[in-house]
């Protein structure tokens, strides 16, 4: 009896692994196909611009507001701890480094995945369900070039811009709380910050992170949409998968990138 259960479990794991590997292979071929079809997306630049609008410009509100609040909370919490070491003039340093290195790319990435990533997946999935992608194929227009690639590049371009805006609003929020509300010296706030934040090590690395995250979220979103089962629950489960997979990917990539970028700290 128990042996049956074990065998059943093993078979399920085996099948699941095979499915996962097959899916990964399909996803990789899909990714290559999207890249090959990308020149078409840029020749019809209007398509990509439209997607930048839908993925990026329409995410502005949530990104800006979240950035502001994250910055303000960071300032409040940071001040409380720094005061204990008499280091409250380093508040700007704390907030800037936290945002630029980590919180900016990661939180903006997570927000982007839930707002824009899920929207992209749902849109492509619905187009698949209502046979619009099929119709395009039958009209000799490759849906990868016309529907998928512009959305991928739209997401990829939007991410770094949204991350920068998130970090900027965060620092501004910290400035409001720290300098205006709490009363830290304005000059010390900005001066210490500028001395401690290095462009190449902190800001540039943060930008690299946001590009990598944007790539991950965009490719997952378009793939799940394209691969969704053409039913209502197929699309809904694909949307959920996008958000979950993107979030996990962002956190895992963040760890890997941080190890490579910041292991030199202390040398």
């Amino acid at each position: 009896m128990a042996l049956d259960a074990v065998a059943f479990g093993l078979r399920r794991i085996g099948r699941g692994t095979l499915n996962a590997v097959t899916r990964l292979g399909f996803a990789s071929r899909f990714f290559v196909a999207v890249l090959l079809n990308s020149p078409a997306a840029f020749r019809r630049i209007q398509l990509t611009l439209r997607e930048i609008y839908f993925a990026g410009a329409l995410s502005l509100v949530i990104i800006l507001v979240s950035g502001l609040f994250v910055g303000m909370v960071l300032a409040l919490q940071g001040y409380e701890v720094l005061t204990r070491y008499g280091a409250n003039e380093s508040l700007g340093v704390l907030v800037a480094l936290s945002l630029v290195r980590e919180l900016g790319p990661v939180v903006a990435g997570l927000l982007f995945a839930s707002r824009a990533g899920s929207a992209i997946t749902a849109e492509i999935g619905l187009m698949k369900t209502t046979e619009q992608l099929s119709a395009m194929e039958m009209m000799a227009v490759d849906p990868l070039a016309r529907v998928v690639a512009p959305r991928f590049w739209g997401g990829l371009v939007s991410m770094p811009l949204l991350t920068a805006l998130f970090s900027t609003l965060g620092i501004f929020g910290a400035y409001l709380v720290g300098v205006k509300l709490i009363g830290i010296d304005n000059g010390a706030f900005w001066g210490n910050m500028q001395a401690a934040v290095d462009f190449r090590r902190d800001i540039f690395n943060g930008i690299i992170k946001s590009v990598v995250f944007g790539f991950a979220v965009s490719i997952i979103a378009v793939f799940e949409g394209y691969d969704a089962r053409p039913t209502a629950e197929g699309v809904s489960s694909a949307t959920t998968r996008t958000v979950v997979a993107s979030s996990l990917a962002i956190l895992a990539l963040d760890f890997i990138l941080t190890v490579f970028m910041f292991r030199g700290i202390g040398v």
């Binding site: 800037a96 630029v100 970090s167 900027t168 620092i171 500028q194 934040v197 462009f199 800001i203």
Partner: peptide, 8 residues
């Protein structure tokens, strides 16, 4: 970020 926050 590059100029005012960082030291570009």
């Amino acid at each position: 970020l590059s100029l005012r926050v960082g030291n570009l």
